[in-house]
Design a protein around this nucleic acid. Structure first.
Lengths: 218, 218
DNA sequence: ATTAATTTTTAAGCTTACTTAAATTTTAAA
DNA sequence: TTTAAAATTTAAGTAAGCTTAAAAATTAAT
C-alpha cells in the first residue's frame, strides 16, 4: 500500500484513540494537510478496499483490516522513535520527523530486528505503547491528562502527546520527559492553568499543554 | 525530489561508474524495471530541471547538480548498509533491499548521525566507497575484476558488486566477503573460469562471478 | 551499401493523489 | 423553526509516473 493510504488509516486510528474522536473526512484532511475533497475521495477508495466503512456525511470507521494496517504502521513509527532515541542524540521532534518517513519503508523483518535489539519495548520515548508484531497493544493505559490531575498529588509523566516542535523544546528546557515525576502544586481553574513542581523547577502550564501531557498517579 | 527521480539519477550514476557505461534511456529503463518510453519521458523532465543533459538518441549525462543528487542518495544507501550490517544479523542481500528503500527517506541530519556513530566509514560492507557529506569520494579505487587477476597471486576482496540474492548466498557459504584473502590457484581461460583458494576451500568460479568480484593485490 | 534488427521516440491513455469551484447536506444559531 | 454557517460531496481538472502501440532513427549484419 502507498504512503498516502498508510497515512490515511493511521490518521483515522490516531484520531479514534485520542480525545478528539472526530474521524470525518474534513478532520482527517486537516491533519494530513490535504483538501476535504481529497479525503472524501480517498475514503471511498479505501472503502472499496475494505479498509474502512464509508457512509455519506458520517464519521469514517476502520475495518479490522484497516486497523491492522494502521497498527502495523504505528508499530514501525514507534519502534523507529525508540531506536533513534536510543542510538542518536536527536530531539524528540527530530526523531518524530524521521520516524514519520521511515515508518513507510520498513519491512516487517527489519521492524522485528529493531524490536529485538531494543528488548521488545512496550513504550516509545513519548510514552505511546508499541503494538507487537501481531498489531496488539498488550499494555493498558491508566493515564489522565494533566488538566484533570488533582492538586497536591504526585504523578509520573506517562505520555507527551504531540508532535509540535515548540512544545518539545519547552519540555526539553523544563525537564518534562517521559517517566519523570511531578507534583501538581496549584491549579488555576478559572484560567485553566496548572502549576507543577518538577525537578528543581516550578512551572505554570497553560491549557494547551496540560491537555497533551498525560500522567499516572504515583 | 521524488523517489523516481532519485532512483533515475542514481541509476545513471551507477552505470557511468561501472564497466557497462551505457547510460542511454533503454539501459536505465532496464535497470529500473520501467518501459523505454517512461525513461525517455523522465530524461526530458530531468533535463528541464538541469539534472542531466539530454540529446535525442544519445547517452544521458548527469550535470553537476544531477551528480550531486546521485551521490547524496548513494551516500545514504551505503551508510544504511554499513549501519544495518553492524547493528543487525541480516544478509547482505536483505541489507541492500532495506537500504534501497530507506535511502530516500533519510534527512541529511540523520545520515550524518549514522556516519558519526560508525566513525565516518569510508566503505560499506560490499566494499563500495561512501561519499562524504559534500558528495565527494576521497578514496581511490585500485581494485580489478577477479576475471583479470593473475594466476598464482594473492588478493584481498575489495568489492562484491552485485545485488543478486543467489550471489550473496553463494558468497556467504564460501567465505567470500569484503576484505577476506584469496589466492588465484588456476585460470581456465577457455571456459573463462577461475579457481581460487579461500580459507580452507578451493572454489571454481564462473565468468559471471569473476566479473562482479573485485580484488586488490596483496 | 542496402537491409534487417534493435533502440529510441512520439502518441495516446491509465492510475494515484491531489487541486479549486460549485452544489448539496448537515449542524448550529437566531 | 426557519435561516445562516459550516462541512461534505460532486464535478472538473492537473501533475507525476507509469503503460502499450506505432513511427522514426540508429546500429548491426549481410
Amino acid at each position: 500500500m502507498s504512503v498516502a493510504v498508510e497515512n490515511f488509516v493511521k490518521a483515522i486510528y490516531n484520531n479514534d484513540k485520542h480525545d478528539i474522536k472526530d474521524t470525518k473526512p474534513g478532520n482527517i484532511a486537516k491533519q494530513l494537510g490535504i483538501s476535504n475533497p481529497a479525503a472524501t475521495d480517498m475514503a471511498k477508495k479505501l472503502a472499496a478496499k475494505d479498509l474502512l466503512h464509508y457512509e455519506k456525511y458520517q464519521a469514517l470507521q476502520l475495518t479490522e483490516k484497516g486497523k491492522k494496517m494502521a497498527l502495523n504502521v504505528v508499530r514501525k513509527h514507534r519502534l523507529w522513535e525508540a531506536f533513534l532515541f536510543k542510538m542518536f542524540d536527536l530531539s524528540l521532534h527530530d526523531i518524530h520527523r524521521e520516524a514519520e518517513l521511515l515508518e513507510h519503508q520498513t519491512s516487517d523483518l527489519l521492524a522485528e530486528k529493531i524490536s529485538e535489539y531494543l528488548g521488545h519495548p512496550k513504550f516509545d520515548p513519548h510514552g505511546d505503547p508499541i503494538p507487537n508484531a501481531n498489531g496488539e497493544i498488550t499494555t493498558k493505559d491508566t493515564s489522565i491528562a494533566l488538566a484533570e490531575a488533582e492538586e497536591g498529588k504526585t504523578f509520573t509523566i506517562a505520555r507527551l502527546m504531540s508532535d509540535d516542535k515548540e512544545f518539545f523544546e519547552f519540555c526539553a528546557q523544563n525537564d518534562i520527559k517521559y517517566r519523570n515525576t511531578l507534583t501538581v502544586s496549584k491549579q488555576f481553574s478559572g484560567a485553566k492553568m496548572t502549576q507543577i513542581a518538577i525537578g528543581l523547577n516550578t512551572i505554570v502550564l497553560n491549557e494547551d499543554f496540560t491537555k497533551i501531557i498525560y500522567v499516572d498517579e504515583h
